[in-house]
Amino acid sequence: MLSNDSLAKIDAAIAKYPADQRQSAVMAALAIAQDEHGWLSVPLMDEVARRLGMPPIAVYEVASFYAMYNLGPTGRFKLTICTNLPCALQGASDAAAHLRERLGVGFGETTADGAFTLKEGECMGACGDAPVVLVNNKRMCVKMVPDALDGLVAELKAAADRGEGATGAAEAKEASGR
C-alpha cells in the first residue's frame, strides 16, 4: 500500500537510529503512511509493522497512544484548534465556537461534504500566537480570529472541491451520511 516515495522516507527515518533499533522509526513511519493514505487502517499498520520487523500489536499500540494519528477516515482537512487555558484567555474559546458554527459540526465530527473534520487540541507550544489552528497536522495557522478563520475555511473548501487534501475523505463522507 505504501508508495516508493513513502518507503524511501521510512528508510531515511530508520537510518537515524542504531541498526538494531528499527522500531524507533515507527512514529515517523506511521506519520508517513498517514500522509499518504489519510488514516491508519489495519492493513496499512501491518505493512509498517513488517517493514520495521515489529509485531503488529506494538504498532497499533503506538498509533492509538499519540493524538495526531487518525485511526479512522477524516475529512479532507482536519482542523485542530487548541482550547487550553492560555489560548482560551486569548480568544480561542470564541474561535472554537465560531468554527463549530461555521462548519456546523462539533468536536470530533466531519462535515457532511467530507471537507472538514474538527478536533479540539491541547497546547501546541504556540500560545503567544493564539488562537492556533493546525491543518492536517502540518500547517500551523496563528492568530486565527473569526475573520481569519472564515478566510481559512473558504480557502480549504475550495481546495477540497478541487480534490485536494487528505484522501479517505470519501469514506468519511459515507460514514457521516449514515
Binding site: L85, P86, E122, C123, G125, A126, C127, G128, D129
Partner: peptide
C-alpha cells in the same frame, strides 16, 4: 517536546 500549557519559548 514543549507541551506544558503556556510555554512557547523552545519553539
Amino acid at each position: 517536546d514543549e507541551g506544558e500549557p503556556g510555554t512557547f519559548k523552545d519553539r
